[in-house]
């Protein structure tokens, strides 16, 4: 059963210098109870596409989509009231920086109880009970006293737990986590990821995890979407993407990481160059300028997505029967 269905989403920012085409026609879906990882570098459109779905972008952003269905209802047609319901009740969001996403002037309790009272329509006393319950769920010790404290009294990992508590307080069907652990230490990161895994198991929440860390998706997600230059270049189950990647950008991502089982020193193989300017996106494949396998066709025409299996598809001209064969890099090779 599909919880989220996105067809041909396009997001454009109108700025003085022109139009930034941040998201350029992406289609994907999220099943109920599934966790999907979206990977790509900064500026690849991973955060903007999620914010577009939530309709949380500033006024200079133009969002277009053929279809944007959440639980069978078109998001683009929702009015203000329905959107508010969607934000609190149906979709919870966790942002990257726990330092700036909590209001320093209000106690944790105030910030946690507000959505509970509005969305679940509970009384103050009931909301407090519920707030203590969710703080316990995210394993914050002595939640009763913690409720009356301000964000500055919490450590980074604790703040991110509070953010998760707020996001899950109204039992959302979908949890969008935008780089939830990037600002945290590895030990804290592991705790937060464990917590999200538990939540998924207990309440069957779907999770969209935006990250640039392939290690995080490998252990967290069942499917991976790879974005580059505002487009999806590859999509598949975690195993398909790690063990049988098709797009040179995915190869590049895998190659540029130090190997886990590194006995002797091997050079890292970086992706040369830098990401495309989305003010004037290149004709053809966005990755062509940095791709060592680029052919003439790559700079002229955009490659269409080709399916390898029911779940695995990639958009690259190398998959064309006439293309020359290229050496690919696979994990473990």
């Amino acid at each position: 059963m599909k919880l989220l269905q996105v067809n041909n989403l396009r997001t454009t920012f109108h700025i003085e210098a022109g139009q930034v085409q941040a998201v350029r026609g992406i289609s994907f879906h999220v099943e109920k109870g599934e966790s999907v990882g979206i990977v790509g570098e900064s500026g690849s459109g991973k955060s903007v596409s999620m914010l577009s779905i939530m309709r949380l972008l500033p006024d200079n952003a133009k969002i277009e989509a053929d279809r944007l269905l959440f639980d069978g209802i078109e998001i683009m047609d929702m009015d203000h009231k329905q959107m508010r319901r969607l934000h609190g009740n149906d979709i919870g969001m966790i942002f990257q920086d726990p330092m700036t996403s909590l209001n320093p002037l209000f106690t944790i309790g105030d910030q946690l109880m507000e959505p509970i009272r509005i969305h679940l329509k509970l009384s103050k006393a009931e909301a407090k009970k519920k707030a203590i319950e969710v703080l316990k769920m995210v394993e914050i010790p002595s939640p009763e006293t913690r409720l009356n404290q301000y964000p500055h009294e919490f450590s980074g990992g604790m703040r991110q737990r509070v953010m998760i508590a707020i996001a899950i307080s109204c039992n959302p069907k979908l949890l969008i986590a935008d780089e939830p652990t990037t600002a945290l230490d590895v030990t804290i990161q592991a705790q937060i990821l464990d917590l999200m895994r538990d939540l998924k198991k207990k309440s069957n929440t779907s999770i969209v995890l935006i990250t640039h860390d392939l290690g995080v998706v490998a252990s967290m997600c069942s499917r991976i979407i790879v974005m580059y230059g505002g487009q999806i270049v590859e999509e598949g189950t975690t195993r398909e993407v790690f063990y049988n990647p098709q797009h040179p950008y995915t190869w590049g991502l895998i190659r540029s990481m130090p190997k886990v089982s590194e006995g002797e020193k091997k050079k890292l193989i970086p992706i040369p160059g830098s990401p495309p300017d989305l003010l004037a996106p290149p004709q053809g494949c966005a990755f062509a300028a940095r791709c060592e396998h680029a052919m003439k066709v790559c700079t002229k025409y955009s490659p269409a997505a080709i399916s390898l299996s029911e779940s695995h598809r990639a958009a690259c001209w190398l998959m064309h029967p006439k293309a020359a064969k290229a050496e690919r890099e696979v994990i473990g090779s």
């Binding site: 590895v186 990161q189 592991a190 995080v216 790690f242 886990v260």
Partner: peptide
């Protein structure tokens, strides 16, 4: 504990690895 918390970018190895809490 610190090294066991490092996420492993390989789904099979990640599944097998044990983390020290």
């Amino acid at each position: 504990a610190l090294l066991s918390a490092v996420p492993i970018p390989d789904p099979d190895l990640a599944e097998k690895s044990e983390r020290i809490h």
